[in-house]
Design a protein around this nucleic acid. Structure first.
Lengths: 221, 221
DNA sequence: CAATCCCTTACAGATATGTGTAAGGGACTT
DNA sequence: AAGTCCCTTACACATATCTGTAAGGGATTG
């Protein structure tokens, strides 16, 4: 089993619960639990420098901001930094996120080794995930159907830029003007129209209001 | 200190973490931890029937649906039922919810005794909250500013009905036609227009898209 | 019971939205 | 080099949105 494990989880309750479970159910010699991404990353760096690197990182995705300044503000950023620092590190994400697209991205771009949904069965799954990852396999919470999400289309930067302004209540004309003023391209009203129309098709939305509402509800924007 | 406490929390990690903390930090004789609203309510009923009622309920608000059928689907419903069953029960809500309006509603309508935000300091606050509530005071997580929310206006049924249809992509005319067909009143396009305009003022929205997006993001619809 | 307030409704006009057609240009294929 | 595909842009038209003004009705109040 893993000897050195580090846990990044900002919720005090979850953090204690996970730590408790890992001590009880797994024979992990050294478990460090942290509440901030930056401190977690520092621990990883120091451990590596001392030639006693951590073998497994278990991290949440969302970290509530508070009075403490931060460089790394999310689990994704922590993972990205950790991957550069220590490519061989095993990483398991434990989060409420249940959008298959986002989770797929984590596997594809950050090469995470496991994904566990917080929930009624979270601790049981986490223990399973750690066992699987220890044996060089990947683990994904069974309630997630990652393959089913591949038909959905990702929003590109232009889409996001338009949607952001529409969400703020700008008209298409105002969006076009704003883009022109900021020297962003494309910026014509027609092109913006066309993009939005395409999104109607892709997301089966009837109008702008419907589109923004759907995307907001799905957590895509 | 409270002798009998019951905890309703569906996340296994949080549930264990809270239970652990309460055993460590408070001298509670009997702590029952449950993962479902219905089971929690049954425990409350049985305990009351046996003349050994619980003194404190600590509950989450959101409970993830799973394969188990449920009557009570949320913390609010559990609280409502518990209040009817046992008016003197002390109730502390422990949740991610940070919308002051929703939390205010819990205090006003369900007479909860404390509210603790999940987070980095969640367990420390929960212990404080239990101490405060034990001494017949209320407790609210300090990061919440409940008074600031009182200027915001609640949505009535008509508002909600209109917003629901707009969110689904109907035009105002279609909403009007739908209401007429369903013999709901008021139903004229003008009145619907007027209502929406009023909501623009109340929520400082610039147009329908902006309004629905804001409300969706705030979790009001 | 008249004054007042608020809700409902109608109507009108300036803007904005949504959709279609069409032209030009870059990238890629054959 | 011609053909194809897709993105950008322009323009036009029917429809929808948003904001006024105004009139009538129910509820409350002095």
């Amino acid at each position: 089993m893993f000897k050195k494990v580090i846990l990044a989880e900002d919720f005090q309750g979850e953090n204690h619960g996970i730590a408790e479970t890992l001590y009880e159910k797994l024979t992990i010699e050294e478990l460090q639990n942290e509440f901030y991404c930056d401190k977690t990353f520092t621990r990883l760096k120091v451990a590596l420098k001392n030639k006693e690197p951590y073998e497994l990182l278990v991290t949440d995705l969302f970290f509530e901001p508070d009075h403490v300044d931060r460089k790394l503000t999310s689990g994704s950023e922590l993972i990205e930094a950790a991957r550069v620092l220590q490519p061989g590190l095993k990483i398991i994400v434990h989060s409420m996120e249940n959008n298959p697209i986002h989770i797929n991205t984590l596997f594809k771009e950050h090469k995470i080794n496991g994904y566990v949904c917080k929930g009624r069965n979270g601790m049981v799954e986490l223990v399973n995930a750690i066992n699987e990852v220890f044996h060089n396999r990947t683990y994904v919470s069974p309630q997630l159907n990652l393959t089913a999400a591949n038909n959905a289309v990702e929003l590109d930067e232009f889409d996001r830029a338009i949607l952001k302004e529409l969400a703020n209540g700008l008209t298409k004309k105002e969006v076009s003007d704003k883009f022109k003023k900021e020297n962003r391209t494309p910026n014509s009203e027609s092109t913006i129209d066309k993009r939005i129309s395409r999104l109607y098709d892709e997301y089966e939305a009837k109008n702008t209001t419907n589109l923004l509402f759907k995307l907001a509800k799905e957590g895509k924007i």
